[in-house]
């Protein structure tokens, strides 16, 4: 990982995600993007564009003709579960009230769940493989995993990963309770070690083993199999396990669902950004990120991903 970005109220820098309490301040990160082009963008798209722009800039890959990697060789992987339910729900309400004539034609692209990845690609000129994962609570970690696979498979040289979830009445309706929810986004850039070296940019963290399994203990056991180094940081899933798996007692825990609210498809990307900040700041040991429980009604599986320090 060579670049990080966040668009979370009260979070000025990725490292702020590691603070133990909820962020202070309710600034709207989407206000950082302005202009006529923003008028018809949905909330999730605007948040994603903010975080994505920062991550590309931090990786030394801002949009522009001088970019060190051609846009055709940069992919996008987006994770979101609820990103476009506002458009879908508002449209059917309009249809019931005013027939199809009451709908806004400009909202057609946002009925497809890939609208965020589409605008990220257009806005930053990224023409490589473009994926949208809407994969439940594990979706953000799955996105980091697929970014790595797209590079390993030789389809692209670098990938911008974005996790985003908005808050609005349809999202509240689907969440079904009053708990706090994240209205924000996180982004990171993945490229091969050789690519980072060739470009002369420092890598913040290396992406290690990943698994998506039927339960969180199974996923953790799978990614830790054969690993010698201790886990120094554990980013826990939203539904915490009643008993911590062995070997994690001494790890610093990071519970982003507690500090930011339920993060759904953005959680894994936020965790990866937090963990990369922690590793980049000299954290000792490896970082374990975990999302999903696999044993709840809305939760079909659990994912785990190891991030490790680079060159130390």
């Amino acid at each position: 990982m060579t670049g990080l970005g966040t668009a979370v109220p009260g979070v000025a820098h990725p490292a702020d995600l590691l603070e133990p309490g909820p962020p202070a301040g309710r600034d709207d990160p989407a206000a950082r993007l302005t202009g006529r082009g923003m008028r018809y963008r949905d909330r999730a798209t605007r948040l994603a564009l903010c975080a994505g722009r920062d991550a590309l800039a931090a990786a030394g890959l801002p949009a522009g003709p001088e970019r060190a990697i051609d846009g055709a060789e940069i992919g996008v992987v987006t994770s979101t579960n609820l990103g476009n339910v506002d458009t879908v729900c508002e449209t059917v309400t309009r249809i019931a009230e005013e027939t199809y004539l009451g709908t806004s034609p400009m909202s057609l692209p946002a009925t497809a769940s890939n609208v965020v990845a589409s605008w990220v690609a257009i806005s930053y000129g990224l023409r490589g493989a473009n994926l949208t994962l809407c994969n439940g609570p594990t979706s953000g970690l799955d996105a980091v995993h697929w970014a790595r696979l797209l590079i390993t498979a030789g389809r692209v040289r670098a990938v911008l990963v974005v996790g985003v979830e908005p808050v609005n009445p349809p999202v509240r309706h689907l969440a079904g309770d009053e708990r706090a929810l994240l209205d924000g986004a996180a982004a990171l850039v993945v490229e091969s070690a050789a690519s980072a070296r060739d470009r002369g940019v420092p890598a913040l963290a290396a992406i290690g083993p990943y698994a998506r399994k039927g339960s969180c203990p199974q996923a953790i056991a799978e990614v830790r199999h054969g690993l010698e180094a201790p886990i120094g940081l554990w980013c826990v899933p939203e539904h915490r396990m009643p008993i911590a798996p062995p070997g994690l007692d001494d790890a610093v825990t990071c519970d982003l669902s507690a500090t930011l609210g339920g993060c759904s498809g953005a959680l894994g990307v936020l965790q990866s950004v937090a963990a990369a900040s922690w590793l980049g700041a000299g954290g000792t040991g490896m970082a374990l990120t975990t999302a999903g429980a696999g044993e709840q009604a809305d939760d079909d599986a659990a994912a785990a991903l190891i991030l490790s320090p680079v060159g130390r």
Partner: peptide
């Protein structure tokens, strides 16, 4: 368990 919904 190793499933991916790709909304492309």
């Amino acid at each position: 368990a190793n499933t991916y919904t790709v909304a492309n």
